[in-house]
């Protein structure tokens, strides 16, 4: 671990408990959903993590508790270090408090996570889908959502396949 990160991780552990993992010099700190807003505020105000570089999630289906990890990748410009916060979320009604109050960029990123993973962000000011059409079903980046493909149409079966193909027929 980088020397500059050590005191920060110690502060986090003293305040929130929780554990961390290290891989190739990166620190992934695990934290509970209820504590995430406080932790982000603390890191931004006390430790100069001004930039929320990325916010994403990973689906560990069929594992259900936790099923998702919501990931907050933070960068500090002043100290030139990065830190990753990971929030484990359960599979049934996954909910995390919104980070829009801390970082404005969380607004679109959380809409993307709602769209792609179906993770709800409590208190989000504008919870709409962002990339997929508003009337689409399901959440594509979940592991139980199959990767779609199209049946190839040949001359002998063109019409059979055309009949069951889900697109506009007019």
């Amino acid at each position: 671990m980088e020397a500059k990160l050590e005191p920060i991780v110690k502060t986090l552990q003293a305040k929130f408990g929780g554990s961390f993992e290290e891989f190739r010099g990166e620190v992934h700190y695990f934290i509970q959903p209820a504590q995430i807003v406080e932790a982000l505020t603390l890191l931004r105000d006390q430790h100069q993590f001004e930039l929320l570089s990325a916010q994403t999630a990973v689906d560990y289906w069929p594992q259900t508790s936790p099923r998702f990890h919501v990931i907050y990748q933070l960068s500090s410009l002043a100290q030139n270090i990065t830190l990753q916060l990971r929030v484990p979320v359960n599979g049934d009604s996954p909910t995390v408090p919104t980070a829009t109050g801390v970082f404005d960029s969380a607004n679109w990123r959380e809409r993307e996570l709602l769209d792609m993973f179906g993770i709800q962000f409590e208190g989000h000011p504008d919870p709409r889908r962002i990339l997929m059409p508003e009337d689409s079903d399901g959440h594509p980046l979940r592991k139980d959502y199959p990767l779609g493909y199209e049946e190839p149409q040949f001359t002998f079966n063109f019409e059979d396949i055309d009949l069951r193909k889900p697109y506009a027929k007019e």
Binding site: R24, S53, A54, Q73, Q84
Partner: peptide, 20 residues
């Protein structure tokens, strides 16, 4: 079985890849 985040400076800004 691990994850990393690596970023480069693209003409538009920080282009990061999260890979697990």
């Amino acid at each position: 079985k691990a994850s990393i985040y690596s970023a480069v400076e693209s003409p538009r800004g920080e282009l990061g890849v999260f890979l697990e």
